[in-house]
């Protein structure tokens, strides 16, 4: 979400203009974060629609072969890792707001690790599936869910990782000032980004619980 500010401050911009554009930039990060949630919502909504549609039509009595269930231990692992990632991201944000950059960084790196573990298990789960993709409606939607979840985990982990990496480098760039305290534009932009990210991670947490219930609980 910080794709934005650097490259086009007009060379002759007055300080007022720069401040005005900067406020727009912060607003864009806010709006963009929420809009990203909107995009993800519509994507997951189509998956949920597929799930409930196939479940209620139960074509050929093949919504789900009795006893068919995705590996539960994998499901729990992935869910917990995603929740840890989301929770730590949000926790890190709240600590950052209180001025504890180190907490944010530790929480962030842990969250990234959790995201990577979730990613690993989410991919590996495909290897140990006890059914083949076309065996039922449930199996098919599950495979689609896995693909979508992989995309979500990659994106969320990426966002968290870039935020933490940015916080490390920012400190150098600011000449040692801590990013949560500086009023430099880069630092404010960074904080806005973390704020949007924590909203997004919260959303990911909710989504992961919802879809866990749909796919892993019979």
């Amino acid at each position: 979400m910080t794709d934005t500010y650097k490259d086009s401050t007009a060379p002759n911009a007055t300080p007022e203009e720069r401040e005005f554009e900067f406020r727009s930039h912060i607003g864009s990060i806010w709006t963009g974060g929420r809009l990203a949630i909107g995009v993800a919502t519509f994507m997951y909504a189509s998956l949920a629609f597929a799930y409930f549609y196939l479940r209620s039509s139960n074509n050929s009595h093949l919504w789900r072969i009795p006893g068919q269930l995705a590996p539960l231990y994998y499901g729990w692992t992935i869910l917990i890792c995603m929740l840890v990632m989301a929770g730590l991201g949000m926790y890190g944000h709240s600590r950052l707001r209180k001025g504890f950059t180190n907490d944010f960084q530790v929480a962030g790196w842990t969250g990234v690790a959790a995201g990577l573990i979730a990613l690993f298990f989410q991919i590996w789960e495909l290897v140990v599936l006890p059914f083949y993709p076309g065996s039922s409606g449930y199996a098919s939607t599950f495979v689609a869910f896995v693909v979508m979840n992989i995309m979500t985990i990659v994106f969320a982990t990426y966002w968290l990782e870039t935020a933490v990496a940015r916080s490390l480098r920012l400190r150098k760039e600011l000449g040692g000032t801590r990013p949560e305290l500086s009023s430099a534009h880069t630092a404010r932009s960074f904080r806005a980004n973390v704020s949007s990210m924590s909203y997004y991670l919260g959303y990911v947490g909710i989504i992961s619980i919802g879809f866990f219930l749909m796919f892993y609980v019979q």
Partner: peptide
């Protein structure tokens, strides 16, 4: 159909048997 000539899609017999009338016509 699943009980038909090929012996059913699932050798484990997990498919509920059904009559020709309510096959594809579950609704």
């Amino acid at each position: 159909d699943a009980n038909g000539a090929s012996g059913g899609l699932y050798p484990d017999g997990n498919v509920t048997p059904y009559s020709p009338y309510d096959t594809y016509g579950a609704k």
